[in-house]
Amino acid sequence: MTAPDHSSRRSALRTLAVVATVAVVCGALVTGTAVALRPRILSNIKAAQQARMAAMLDAIPGLAEVLGDSGASALEPVLVDLASGERAAGDPLSFDPVAAAADPATGRALTADEDIAGLGRIATSGVAYIVRDGDGALMLAILPIAVRGYASVIRGYLALEQDLTTVAALNIIEQAETPGLGARIQTPEWQALWPGRSVARPDGTLGVTIVRQGSSSAPYEVDGLTGATRSSTAVGAGVTFWLGDAGYGPFLSRLAATEASR
């Protein structure tokens, strides 16, 4: 510094003042924009998720005829108590699984053995969507899945056919994995591998196994993505978790029993 000694203290104070002012002004600008635009961005995200849900339903053969003009509104949302598999009290449409998981009254911590999805905590209830045909017979059960991926929590929907073991569709609606690598779990090409797969494994449990790309042979195996191993394996673990005892397993057995006794 070229400033003489007696003024260096003043110059340091001036530097601090300038830096503080810049920080406050810039912080206000960023915060202001974020707060002002937040509702708009959230509604964009929600619209995009609904569009993906609608696209998933459109892609399931024969479903469009059943749903007819009513479209996705023919889905019957059910709030399920995960442990018992019975219906839980509450409004399924306003249920927020993230908030419910965080609240000690409505969420619980998973034990390390249970937690193959890496979620830490989940809500004790969850929403499932049921689609019935004109005669009231079960056509489709749609379950939301969530799992910790490589860089983000991946969320999506798994649709099961009336036998509750055949995958009708898998749709990833939310992820922030590495663009170009892990984010490929959201491509139509990868999601197209899922319909027709079975979630009934030889050991009697429900779930899928993600295998090396191009090497799937059994019906419960799905090809992973080379270069996106962590993200694609996570989706498989998420599906297995939510079909398991800690997830919708009890609900699915109840549903299957009710259907069988019809």
Partner: peptide, 13 residues
Amino acid sequence: ASLVMAIDQILQA
């Protein structure tokens, strides 16, 4: 960086 964050939010909105 502040300008970029603001523009990013505007694009998302």
